[in-house]
Nucleic acid binder design. Structure first.
Length: 260
DNA sequence: AATCTCCGCAACCGCCAACCA
DNA sequence: CTGGTTGGCGGTTGCGGAGAT
């Protein structure tokens, strides 16, 4: 199912994430947010590249991520959006609360593609269009612009597609919160941590439920200049020296906004 | 029971765009 | 304007479980 753990030449681990790595990453991101994916593994005590951490968090550890068990409605949505957008998995996933682009993509390739292809041949008697779709799923990324062109055209001519509200998969929109959009992981740019109250609580509760030892197992036990004196920390928890006091908000302001 | 084949999916890779100094 | 850095995205890979032989 997953890749065998190994190391690359620079000593970074690759392959399957261990429960311990998951715990560290989840704990760190929950606590500090993802201020810089590149630097994060270093401070989280992980021997992973930043990209790997980001992917693991977004696709697996992030709160409210739904796994498996696609409903009929979800599958229809994927098919319909794919028909209009093409392989814009992040855009499609944004319309499916709790689903990630990677999972939508996998589900498409493993389940829906065949079904969609069959359906296209059966209902439309439009083999040329189906062939085009089939072809563009086989083409590589170099043909992306061509695909976009194709899909934009398709979007315009498809009267059954409702207006799409495209948004970042992970951005939090106060006006239209969804379960997948409540938590903003993209705060590297403005150095803010945004999250609504309910998801804060859910996030923390979920986190506490499956990593109860976190508060007594620090990332680093040395050089801690910050002791956990906030409302959630138990006595004795030590944080690493905080590497990023950012912009207008300091770290504890962020934490306040993050948790409650 | 052993071996083979297929398939699902987690994770990696490379490219691109945005951002910043 | 330019070059470096970073995050995001989509395509692809390959491990390992499940079913077939």
């Amino acid at each position: 199912m997953a890749r065998t753990p190994s190391c690359d030449k620079s000593g970074l681990r690759k392959g399957t994430w261990t429960p311990e790595e998951d715990r560290k990453l989840k704990a760190y991101v929950t606590k500090y947010g993802c201020w810089n994916w590149r630097q994060l593994p270093k401070y989280a005590g992980l021997q992973r590249c930043g990209k790997s951490c980001r992917l693991r968090w977004l696709n697996y550890l992030r709160p409210n991520v739904k796994r498996g068990n696609y409903s009929k409605e979800e599958e229809e949505t994927i098919i319909r959006l794919h028909e209009s957008l093409g392989n814009k998995w992040s855009a499609i996933a944004a319309q499916l609360p709790g689903r990630t682009d990677n999972e939508v993509k996998n589900h498409w390739h493993t389940n829906l593609k065949k079904r969609f292809k069959d359906k296209t041949f059966e209902t439309k008697d439009n083999s040329q269009e189906a062939a085009t779709i089939e072809a563009h799923t086989k083409r590589g990324r170099s043909k992306e612009k061509e695909e976009t062109k194709f899909n934009n055209h398709n979007l315009q001519i498809n009267p059954t597609s409702p207006p799409l509200i495209l948004e970042s998969s992970y951005s939090y929109s106060p006006a239209q919160p969804t379960s997948s959009d409540q938590f903003s992981s993209d705060n590297s740019k403005d150095n803010t941590v945004t999250c609504d109250d309910n998801s804060n609580k859910a996030l923390f509760e979920a986190f506490e439920a499956d990593s109860g030892s976190f508060w007594t197992e620090p990332f680093f036990s040395d050089n801690s200049s910050i002791n956990s004196s906030n409302s959630l920390g138990s006595g004795g928890y030590e944080f690493p020296e905080f590497p990023f006091l950012c912009g207008e908000m300091d770290f504890y302001d962020q934490l306040d906004g993050f948790y409650f």
